[in-house]
């Protein structure tokens, strides 16, 4: 749970990202400042190409900014060191992707183990899968699971290392609303029960209702920040 007084978990300043495609320069981020507080659930909302994913990738250490800085727990992230970023991802960040990105040759439990094996203080894979409601599907391969189940395995995989940051890129993008709600439930529960700072990308405005705070993106900038007075439960949503 977060409140105004919570410590700042992640602080990004003046982030820019320019992709060069041949002779064309694409400005994905044009100087973004953002703070994520401990235990906060932030939703990033905006149209495609507005820079949400780029920001999330930089915050998660998956990508490097062209300029700007990121502070994690008041320590600057060495954005130019592949090794430092790797350790940061390994020890502090959990990712959930739109298309699940499960390893097809590994079962649900093994997909989670893949991460717990290299984490410092993980929970047992069974526990993580039980949190997302898949305690009875441990030995199923991705091909034997529905889309929603696969995404929940991905969430279990992300939370099993007890990350400080949970970054979800369109986690419900490929799911119908009913399944999407189950997935959001799992994310929200993690956020509440484990106190994991969570950032979630969506272009579905309805989903923004579950957040503490909503950041509106357009053209590589945060154009508006809104704080939800009431955080609604996923079950109350419909789209």
């Amino acid at each position: 749970m977060e409140n105004e007084a919570s410590a700042i978990a992640l602080e990004a300043r003046k982030l820019t990202k320019i992709y060069r495609m041949g002779t064309v320069e694409v400005h994905a981020l044009r100087g973004v400042d953002v703070d994520l507080r401990q235990g906060e659930l932030v939703v990033l909302l905006g149209p495609s190409g507005s820079g949400k994913s780029t920001l999330l990738n930089i915050l998660g250490g998956l990508d490097m900014p062209t300029s700007g800085s990121v502070m994690f727990r008041d320590q600057p992230l060495a954005l130019d060191s592949e090794r430092a970023l790797n350790l940061y991802r390994r020890n502090h960040v959990g990712f959930v992707f739109q298309f699940y990105n499960l390893i097809p040759s590994l079962t649900a439990r093994e997909n989670v183990s893949l991460v717990t094996e290299i984490a410092t203080n993980p929970m047992p894979p069974i526990e993580a899968l039980t949190i997302v409601g898949l305690g009875d599907r441990l030995d199923h391969f991705p091909a034997q699971l529905s889309g929603g189940e696969q995404q929940r395995v991905a969430i279990a995989r992300a939370i099993a290392k007890r990350p400080d940051l949970l970054l979800c890129d369109e986690p419900t993008g490929a799911l119908d609303s009913k399944t999407g709600i189950l997935v959001l439930d799992a994310i929200l529960r993690t956020n509440r029960e484990l106190g994991t700072t969570t950032a979630l990308i969506t272009h579905n405005a309805v989903i923004a209702e579950i957040a503490n705070r909503v950041l509106y993106f357009a053209d590589g900038r945060i154009v508006e920040t809104r704080r939800n007075a009431i955080q609604r439960a996923p079950g109350e949503l419909a789209w």
């Binding site: 090794r83 790797n86 991802r89 390994r90 390893i103 984490a119």
Partner: peptide, 12 residues
Amino acid sequence: EIGLLKAFGYDN
């Protein structure tokens, strides 16, 4: 898959 493993924190 290589990208994914890196995202999880597997080193090169």
